[in-house]
């Protein structure tokens, strides 16, 4: 199968602190990779490097065959290929839901307004938020905001979706509505990299699990092996923290 993302020996350092080094990861089209690991292990930073929100000190990242580099001229068009959803939603507070969705397709891709609007409405209906199209972000619940944020990423037709702890800031009763959306995206064959702490969800959605600790990939494998037969002690310990 076609490779969408290739990460070769990537290192991230701040001054004298190494966040991670020698990261290698290949993601194929249609694959869902879930990254887990303790807080501060570098998994979020890693995800942010993938669309050059953070720079890297060594190695290279290829997205759909193109090198990801914040300094490159067409970084905008490279970033379009990676849709990102953040923990804190980060909808634009001065725009309505519909305007939030239409901003990038119209301004960046120069697509026709009518056509984008039609697509936005279809997507909103799919996540159950059609009635909220003219609301402002502050009028939505956390779960609703996060669903809008997912649609905002989807409408750019990205090759890959990067989801950075998208349920971490949500009230427990809203986690489900967001994860259901992600699960349905997985079923339709979207390529995704997901950083999460929701282990049951990870098991349900992942094609491949990756465990990062201390800035290294410690273990990776298919979800059954990963959860039922962890090979390393560190992963065993980590998984135990999630069960009573």
């Amino acid at each position: 199968m076609e490779e969408i993302l290739k990460v070769n020996n990537v290192c991230k350092r701040y001054e004298d602190i190494t966040v991670f080094e020698n990261m290698n990861l290949t993601v194929k089209k249609g694959e869902v990779v879930v990254i887990v690991g303790p807080s501060g292990c570098g998994k979020s930073t890693f995800l942010r490097c993938l669309n050059a929100l953070e720079d890297i000190q060594d190695g290279e990242i290829l997205l759909d065959g193109e090198k990801v580099d914040a300094a490159s001229k067409n970084i905008g068009s490279i970033r379009e290929k990676a849709g990102m959803v953040f923990q804190s939603y980060d909808l634009f507070p001065h725009l309505t839901v519909l305007q939030n969705l239409m901003l990038a397709p119209v301004k960046v891709k120069k697509r026709d307004k009518k056509e984008v609007e039609a697509e936005a409405l279809t997507l909103l209906e799919r996540v159950g938020l059609l009635t909220k199209k003219d609301s402002f972000p502050r009028q939505l619940s956390g779960g609703q905001k996060q669903r809008v944020a997912i649609v905002r990423a989807l409408i750019m037709h990205p090759e890959i979706l990067l989801l950075d702890e998208i349920t971490a800031a949500l009230d427990p009763e809203m986690v489900r509505e967001v994860l259901d959306v992600v699960l349905s995206l997985a079923k339709e064959g979207r390529t995704m990299i997901i950083v999460t702490h929701e282990m049951q969800f990870a098991r349900a959605v992942a094609d491949r699990m990756v465990f990062i600790d201390n800035g290294r990939i410690v273990e990776e494998g298919n979800p059954e092996e990963f959860f039922d037969n962890p090979k390393t002690d560190r992963l065993k310990q980590f998984l135990q923290t999630f069960s009573y």
Binding site: R48, N51, L53, G76, S77, R79, E80, A82, G83, M84, F86, S88, D90, F92, L103, A104, K107, V108, K109, A149, R152, A153, M156
Partner: peptide
């Protein structure tokens, strides 16, 4: 917030946009 800049960049907006 800085995260507004990041999410706009992640959507592919140019600095000017």
């Amino acid at each position: 917030p800085k995260s507004q800049t990041e999410s706009a960049l992640a959507l592919g907006l140019s600095r000017k946009q």
